[in-house]
Write a protein that binds this DNA or RNA. Structure first.
Length: 257
DNA sequence: ATGACTCGCAACGCGAGA
């Protein structure tokens, strides 16, 4: 069994205690982090290395940043999403671990929709589609985990009306998410769980967590080779209830060996 | 209810997040 977890930690330094406590209990084979909010040199790699993880962090100061941690060697890394040499935002890291191609994705938020952030988001999704579609991953399992900042369907949010017009729920964003699925990728959580009420993010404001006013925006998209081995995909709500919690909670994918 | 949280920052209020 191989477990791969994804978690937008909203600053790895502010969250280090919570993250390590969860890692020590959950013991994921691969951990994909987003919004580490620090440069790679400042990533607390020693804390993970002493727990047996190899670390690959791609960061920048203050914003964004992704990391890929694994109990097995990290091979053939890609540290930026191809397709725009001008894009300096740290939002993508990809590598091979134990014969599985894995990526940690922090897809742009895109709000406000009237700003240039929304076309940047859509273009980023086009680049991701071109990257995945243009490379030959078919000979090995591919797992794209991360914060996609997309609410795929109305059942993926507590109150669809409240999200109407938001970049996370705009028809364009959802269409481009479907375009990724149309490459042959499966939304692993949705393949195993039907219905409303499955969320991965609750806003810090308005008591969203206490009222369970959440949205499902952290996803695993996996190719056929990985879907053949899909056993479980679960949202662990535990960390969201903690003091000093991230506004996102981990999602854990389990593949058969 | 023009609000509300929480983060990082050569901070001491602001931009960004979602």
């Amino acid at each position: 069994m191989t477990t791969i977890a994804t978690w937008n930690v909203n600053s790895v330094k502010a969250r280090l205690g919570n993250v390590l406590e969860w890692v020590d209990a959950a013991l994921p084979d691969v951990l994909l982090l987003q919004e580490i909010k620090c440069e790679a040199e400042a990533f607390p790699r020693l804390e993970f290395e002493t727990r047996g993880y190899a670390c690959l962090a791609v960061g920048q100061k203050s914003y964004n940043g992704v990391a890929l941690l694994a109990r097995a060697p990290i091979e053939d890394p890609v540290t930026a999403l191809p397709g725009d040499a001008e894009d300096g935002q740290a939002r993508y890291v990809e590598a091979t671990v134990g014969g599985i191609r894995v990526a940690s994705i922090y897809l742009p938020n895109g709000n406000p929709v009237e700003s240039d952030k929304f076309p940047y988001k859509l273009a980023w999704m086009d680049r991701l589609r071109a990257h995945v579609g243009g490379r030959r991953f078919d000979d090995m399992p591919l797992v794209l985990g991360g914060d996609y900042n997309v609410i795929p369907e109305a059942i993926d949010c507590y109150d669809p009306a409240a999200w109407e017009g938001d970049a996370l729920f705009r028809p364009e964003s959802r269409a481009k998410f479907r375009a990724l699925e149309n490459l042959g990728l499966t939304d692993a959580f949705r393949a195993l769980h039907a219905g409303k009420g499955h969320y991965t993010f609750w806003d810090y404001q308005r008591g969203a967590w206490q009222h369970d006013h959440g949205i499902r925006i952290d996803h695993f998209l996996i190719n056929g080779r990985a879907a053949d081995r899909l056993r479980e995909c679960e949202i662990d709500r535990g960390p969201r209830a903690r003091e000093k919690a991230s506004d996102h909670t981990p999602v854990v994918l389990t593949l058969e060996d």
